[in-house]
C-alpha cells in the first residue's frame, strides 16, 4: 500500500498551479484534501505522474455567504462549512449535508469542492450542488468560467473539466423564500458512504400550499439527478399532502444499481422511504419559514 513514484509540486499561486498542470499534461492531478485521492494512490488504483498540491495557493479557503447564495472556495474543509452559521443561514442544506460527510477526521482534511470535482455519485455535496441549482468556477490558463452543475457532471468520477484546470470554487444559490429543506441518509455504519441518501427542497405558495417539491439522491444514479415531484403534491396544504405518493413517484424516476451492500430493489425502497420522510420534514420547515 505504497504509491507508485510521482512528482510533487506545491505552487504558491493559481497561475503557477495552472502552469504546472499545463506542463505536466494528462498525468498531473490536483491535490486538495486528499481524502479520496491518496487512498487511490496507495492502493495503486491511480498513478498520476505529478501531484499539484494547491494547499499553499492563497485565497481559496473562503466561504462567502451573500443574499444570492454561498460561494465555497476550493480549500474550504467540510468541517469549516459545517460550522459556518452564515452559510447555513443562506442555504441550510450545506450544513445538513456536510454533517453526513464521513467522520470528523475526514471532514477536517477533505474539501467540499474537491469532493464535487471528484464527482463521486456517493458524495453528498455533488447532490447538494445539483439540488440547489449550483455551479462551479473553473480556472484554466485561458481564464475563469462558470459551469452549471448540469453541464459539469458527466459520469461517475467524470466531469466536463479536461486539460489544465482547477475548480476554484462552488456556488450554492440561496434557499428561496417560503422554502424548507431536509437531508437524510441510510448508511451501513455511521459515516460510511450512504447506501442511499436524499436531499429535498419544498417551496410553498403564498397560501402555504405546496408549490414545488424537488429531490436529489445519493448513491442512486451515475451522476447527480434532480427530480421534480411537484405533481404528486402540488397545491396541497402541508398537513394533507400525500408525501408517500411523492416518495412513490421518486421510486419510479430512479434507476439504482445493486452492490455488495444493497440490492437495486433495496435502494429503490430507501428512495421511497427517505423521500417521503424528508419531504414531510422539509414541508414542515417551509411552513415555519412562511409564518
Amino acid at each position: 500500500m505504497k504509491p507508485a513514484p510521482f512528482a510533487y509540486a506545491d505552487p504558491r499561486t493559481l497561475d503557477e498551479a495552472l502552469a504546472v498542470l499545463s506542463e505536466e499534461g494528462e498525468g498531473a492531478k490536483v491535490l486538495a484534501g486528499g481524502q479520496s485521492l491518496l487512498p487511490l494512490l496507495n492502493m495503486r488504483l491511480a498513478a498520476p505522474t505529478t501531484l499539484v498540491d494547491i494547499n499553499r495557493v492563497p485565497g481559496l479557503d473562503r466561504i462567502e455567504a451573500g443574499e444570492a447564495g454561498v460561494r465555497v472556495g476550493a480549500l474550504v474543509r467540510h468541517a469549516a462549512l459545517l460550522r459556518s452559521a452564515e452559510a447555513s443561514a443562506v442555504q441550510p442544506l450545506l450544513a445538513r449535508a456536510t454533517a453526513n460527510v464521513a467522520h470528523p477526521a475526514i471532514r477536517n482534511r477533505g474539501t467540499t469542492v474537491g469532493s464535487i470535482a471528484h464527482a463521486d455519485p456517493s458524495g453528498e455535496m455533488t447532490a447538494v450542488l445539483a439540488l440547489t441549482g449550483g455551479s462551479v468556477t473553473v480556472a484554466t490558463p485561458d481564464g475563469s468560467s462558470s459551469v452549471d452543475w448540469a453541464d459539469f457532471f458527466l459520469g461517475p468520477l467524470e466531469t466536463a473539466v479536461h486539460g489544465p484546470a482547477v475548480v476554484t470554487s462552488a456556488f450554492f444559490p440561496a434557499l428561496a423564500p417560503r422554502s424548507g429543506t431536509a437531508f437524510a441518509e441510510v448508511s451501513r455504519r455511521k459515516g460510511d458512504y450512504a447506501v442511499c441518501g436524499t436531499g429535498v427542497v419544498v417551496t410553498l405558495d403564498e397560501d402555504r400550499r405546496v408549490a414545488s417539491a424537488r429531490v436529489a439522491h445519493i448513491s442512486v444514479g451515475l451522476v447527480p439527478e434532480v427530480h421534480d415531484l411537484t405533481d404528486a403534491v402540488a397545491g396541497r396544504p402541508v398537513d394533507t399532502a400525500d408525501w408517500a405518493a411523492a416518495g412513490a413517484m421518486a421510486q419510479g424516476l430512479v434507476d439504482p444499481d445493486g452492490d455488495l451492500h444493497a440490492s437495486a430493489d433495496y435502494r429503490r425502497l430507501l428512495v421511497g422511504a427517505l423521500t417521503t420522510r424528508t419531504l414531510a420534514s422539509a414541508a414542515a420547515e417551509a411552513l415555519e419559514r412562511s409564518a
Binding site: 451492500h261 444493497a262 440490492s263 433495496y266
Partner: peptide, 8 residues
C-alpha cells in the same frame, strides 16, 4: 443479516 437481506 443486513438490512437489504432482511428486506429480501
Amino acid at each position: 443479516i443486513s438490512p437489504t437481506e432482511l428486506y429480501d
